[in-house]
Nucleic acid binder design. Sequence first.
DNA 1: TTTTCGACTAAATTGGTTTTATGGTCGAAT
DNA 2: ATTCGACCATAAAACCAATTTAGTCGAAAA
Lengths: 202, 202
Amino acid sequence: MAKKKKKSIIEKVAQDLFSKFGFFKTTVDEIAKAARIGKATIYYYFEGKEDIFKEVVEKESRILNAKIKEAVNQEDTPEKKIRAFILTRAKHLNELANIYSALKDDVLKKFDFIEKIREKDFKKEMEIIQKILKEGIEKKNFMIEDIELTSFAIISALKGLEYPWPPRISLPEVEKNIDKLLEVFFHGIVKRELFQEKIIKK
Amino acid sequence: MAKKKKKSIIEKVAQDLFSKFGFFKTTVDEIAKAARIGKATIYYYFEGKEDIFKEVVEKESRILNAKIKEAVNQEDTPEKKIRAFILTRAKHLNELANIYSALKDDVLKKFDFIEKIREKDFKKEMEIIQKILKEGIEKKNFMIEDIELTSFAIISALKGLEYPWPPRISLPEVEKNIDKLLEVFFHGIVKRELFQEKIIKK
DNA sequence: TTTTCGACTAAATTGGTTTTATGGTCGAAT
DNA sequence: ATTCGACCATAAAACCAATTTAGTCGAAAA
């Protein structure tokens, strides 16, 4: 059996087990048993438990980014692209348990390799949003003074939605209200008719 | 010595100790010693340790809200009021260690009384922002479709800035960039000249 | 009557020890 | 080149005794 094939089998069973039990509660022995190999064989293919998890997360990350790229490329306006980015990312991040855990799980943050994953993910987010914003500027849809800061503001606002709100607070359902929220973001809250009235008077 | 006076002394020493050591590491015995009373006397004035902490937090909350009110009332435009709210709240929340802890400390969230404090704080935030937004609407500065949702968006965006970003990411300094960030929020990113050109043609 | 607190209690926490489980290694077998 | 049983160091879990903590109660003091 080709080395790649065996490695891929281990990864697949590990992905399932990590998804179900999390990084800490999944043992290397369990992964080995699920892959029907001896535990020591795992170390022939991977450097260790962290390495397995890292590769699982990287695999899910590739899936996520492909989904996002596909969804964004289907839209024609930069506004719609941003919308597609937000919704697609949220949807698939929820389904891909391991990258979700790698990005969100507080107890994992002590690992250096997790930190690198988080940095990489953040940079990817920034990159995608900045690209859309630039496109918006080129198409004369957007007027943005600081692309990087604006991108950060978008990402930050999305992160804010994940805040640990007290359970008894009734929050607006984000998916139902995404377009209103985006409207605020795209058009701001300052009245545009101020412009209109001034120009009509001239 | 009047009952209120003694209670207030206990509260003051408790505030200091909780600020320094946190809720868990401060003992009732230490509070009693610092107030120069027997431990059992504490229970004459307070129902228990949680009650002391709750009242300390409520006291700090009143201080915080007074500072915010003062700062907001000094501004004339709703834009400036929102700015004042954000900056004043951030500044004083950082100084008032106990309410900061009550609102942010993850290990405290298992307490029901902490949850109530967090709910109350959220509602206060919503109330203040909604009031400013309404004022902006009345003064014809703002055009907002859904005040509640917009208020939530503002609060959420601010919470996003507290996200546990990976340490090696270089983030924009929020205080230095607050005005740019607010500009994005007030005016959006969609180009206003689109309007302008259309109206000139008519 | 109100306020104070010493003595006490139940339960939580702490610290130490023992047992078990886990990630990883190595040499021999395939 | 690939596989894995036996083994190891150490981390985690379990266990236990001692100590500490939040809270109570009755009696004394004001």
